[in-house]
Amino acid sequence: MKNRLETTLCGVKMKNPVIAASGTFGFGDAYAAYFDAARLGGIAGKGLTLNGSLGNKGVRVWETPAGMLNSIGLENPGVRHFAETECHRMRALGTAVICNLGGHSEADYIEGGRLLNDADMDILELNISCPNLKAGGMAFGMRAETAADITAKVKAVTHFPLFVKLTPNAGDIVCVARACEDAGADGLSLVNTFLGMAVDIQQRRAVFDNVYAGLSGPAIQPIALRMVHQVCKAVRVPVMGMGGICDWQSALAFLMAGASAVQVGAATFANPMAMCEIIEGLQRYCESEGLSNIGAIRGCL
């Protein structure tokens, strides 16, 4: 059976355009009992910070209608550990390696980006959209000026194709996207989680210690799709679309809206086989529609 899903993203060849979203697949080994990660187009590893972090205290996950809130707070082993150890394990999985880099400050991002030049990886995904950090994170992605500034500074130090991961919480995500492209981003990833909240009505207090947390899952899918469509119309660089994708039909919708690849996150929690089913569904779709490659339908609307 001919693979009709091969996708090239900034020169990085992938078996298919289905990528595990950062923070939902560890460093690629979490679902080894369920399926071989080599089936995936790529894996975006857990978001890193320069010196690592223990993450947030208190409740970290909370189910919502058609989704979930999380306030993990980037618990991670740090950039050096990734560059020395985890990247090699990820490489051995036989799929594209995307490194997600967060930060608390401009200096963190730049130093992190520089240190990652020693890592064996394919794409650097700059996370300026994590809503769960007290300092940094999403703050960089809320406005075009700060987003462009940090993009340019990390682009200046990294050897890898640079995708900037955008927050849907920005006032104007299209404006931020354009600014990142102008600042040298090789691609964009969107959207990260929406800022949400939950209340423990028995205890009469916010569920999360940080009060607000990041919403993901099918609940956000139509809004994420709209934003991906708007951004794809406005930029020339490739976009990795994400936000509530949970089956091949929703993945296809993001590709039709203009995304070059899709990332799948929370859906894997609900259905560990979700990404495999999406890959199989897209392949079947290409066969039944007579498409020699999935790229043929990209941005068809």
Binding site: A33, K46, R60, V61, W62, E75, T268
Partner: peptide
Amino acid sequence: SRMACGTGACLGCSIPTADGNRRVCK
């Protein structure tokens, strides 16, 4: 602990231990 994935991926169930953070699920 509250869990989302159960497989060690999401870190939602991390607890502090003498050996650092550990995932209750994994």
